[in-house]
């Protein structure tokens, strides 16, 4: 029998998992990827909260409806000439008495490349199994739960919203370009059509998968030299034990419980 045994029911385990989510805080990543025909540089941050915990023998914590809150910033360049042909106003000459022949210059419109930044925040819920682990890392015992499989992320609504946001952002940028007025709707439509829902999901999916792949919540940490009482004075030094072995499992009886077992020594 273990020297120390602690058990938590699903209610308590839920609180431990939520504390682990809070402890993880906000994680960030940045890279570049394809946005339809474009290459977009992106930065994203994500945090996790909530969810209902169910314990399954021998070592599974199932979290249902865990909320993934994310913020996505990406930026891509778009050459308007790709959708609106460049054109030139022809040179017009007229003969003016006493002055002679006067010609207007030939004016050519070469549509610029526009830079479109997008900022999008949203949240989605997912459910997945996490596996309990207890590992000694250096001088510290770490009990964490690691996601078993990458869950299915429902990103279609977000993709549609992002695509709409791209259209709005593009229109706002294009309206400032001379001569674009008559072509504004065409240009904005051309950009969103070029990207399409598939283009957005092609970017968003891998970004969000990056955050949930290998997702790990640390639910408890303790020093291998575990302090029972702190050092309070020269005559009352710290009292500590050594945690020689630690395990985390799930046991089921009339209730499912998270079990921590430790062997200690003085």
């Amino acid at each position: 029998m273990s020297d120390i045994l602690a058990a938590a029911d699903e209610n308590a385990a839920t609180k431990m998992v939520h504390a682990g989510q809070t402890s993880l805080g906000t994680v960030s990543a940045s890279d570049s990827g394809s946005l339809g025909p474009f290459n977009a540089s992106w930065g994203a941050s994500a945090s996790f909260s909530g969810g209902t915990v169910a314990l399954r023998e021998p070592d599974i914590i199932r979290i249902a409806n865990c909320t993934l809150n994310y913020n996505l910033n990406f930026n891509f360049s778009f050459d308007l000439s790709d959708i609106i042909p460049d054109f030139c106003l022809p040179r017009i000459c007229i003969r003016i008495p006493f002055i002679g022949r006067v010609c207007t210059p030939r004016i050519c419109i070469d549509w610029p490349t526009v830079n479109i930044p997008i900022n999008y925040s949203d949240s989605l819920q997912f459910s997945s199994d996490f596996r309990l682990r207890a590992n000694l890392v250096g001088s510290e015992w770490i009990i964490d739960i690691e996601i078993v499989d990458i869950p299915l992320l429902q990103i279609s609504p977000a993709a549609a919203a992002i695509l709409a946001a791209i259209g709005v952002a593009a229109a706002a940028i294009l309206v400032a370009i001379p001569f674009i007025g008559p072509f504004l709707a065409i240009a904005a439509l051309g950009i969103t059509a070029a990207i399409g829902i598939a283009g957005v999901t092609g970017l968003l999916g891998p970004i969000l998968a990056l955050f949930v792949s290998g997702l790990t919540f640390t639910i408890h940490k303790l020093d291998r030299q575990f302090e029972i009482l702190p050092n309070t004075s020269a005559i009352d030094p710290q009292v500590a034990i050594f945690v020689d072995a630690l395990s985390a499992t799930v046991q089921s009886s009339d209730e499912d419980e998270l079990i921590l077992e430790a062997d200690i020594s003085a």
């Binding site: 120390i4 045994l5 009886s253 419980e257």
Partner: peptide, 15 residues
């Protein structure tokens, strides 16, 4: 019978 019984948490130390 569960270790926690009607409570949230349970802890024990062996002799």
């Amino acid at each position: 019978m569960s270790l926690t019984q009607i409570h949230d948490v349970f802890a024990s130390v062996h002799e």
